[in-house]
Amino acid sequence: MIYNLTVSPDFAPDHISGWYFFNTWLQRQLGERVHLELYDCFEKQREDIAADKIDLIYANPYDAAMLVREKGFRAVVRPQGKSDEAIIATLASSDVNAVEDLVPGITVATTDDPDVHTMGMIMLESADLNRSNISIEEVDSYVLVAKKLLQGKAQAGFFLKEGFEELSDLIRNQMKVLVCSQISVVHHTLLVGPRMAESIPQLTEALLSMGDDEKGRKVLESMDLTAWEIMEEEETEFMIDLIDTLID
């Protein structure tokens, strides 16, 4: 049997090769064949999840909720010290200095990343802005969100904090951060699907000791991770409950 591994499309493009290294490492650890399928948008990935084609996924917190509650997946580990935080930024030269300075009628540039978009919309609420009084422009990447701001086609942009920090200095210096979320308990997780459930003990053990040898450490580094941490079932449920409160 060949298992299918995939990664949430919001991972940083610089670390694509890291996920291929991880896949090779994983196959050696499990003694099983694993195919890595990467997607450039959430929609296509969700179609394959719905069609039960995925067995192992590094998922963003919104998809994790759906995978656990609707598809019987189990979160096994999370990346150590990494949480998903969102930033709302505007042009550095703008008169806007706080979220409350943003006014109805603005255009907001965003991506199809569901957690960043939701957190961004929540942080606009304090300015009485919502879907009904702003225009949303969805683009494919954080670089394109920045481009919309620099071109003056959007007055605010939503970024994954990590995505914002990975922009070049030249681009980042032309923007200013209005607000950055500090939620800390919303993060990506590695989830295992029902077909692969029997491998969970072996997989968890291998992942938790991944940093113990040099090969594993290098693979982690190539994915920009330091280590995996165990994800208890109640911790997953808590994160899902929390996300549930953020969705109207």
Binding site: A98, V99, M123, S126, V179, C180, S181, Q182, I183, L242
Partner: peptide
């Protein structure tokens, strides 16, 4: 004032 960007969470 409520702090920007934060969520207060309790169970």
């Amino acid at each position: 004032p409520y702090p920007d960007g934060k969520l207060i969470v309790s169970r």
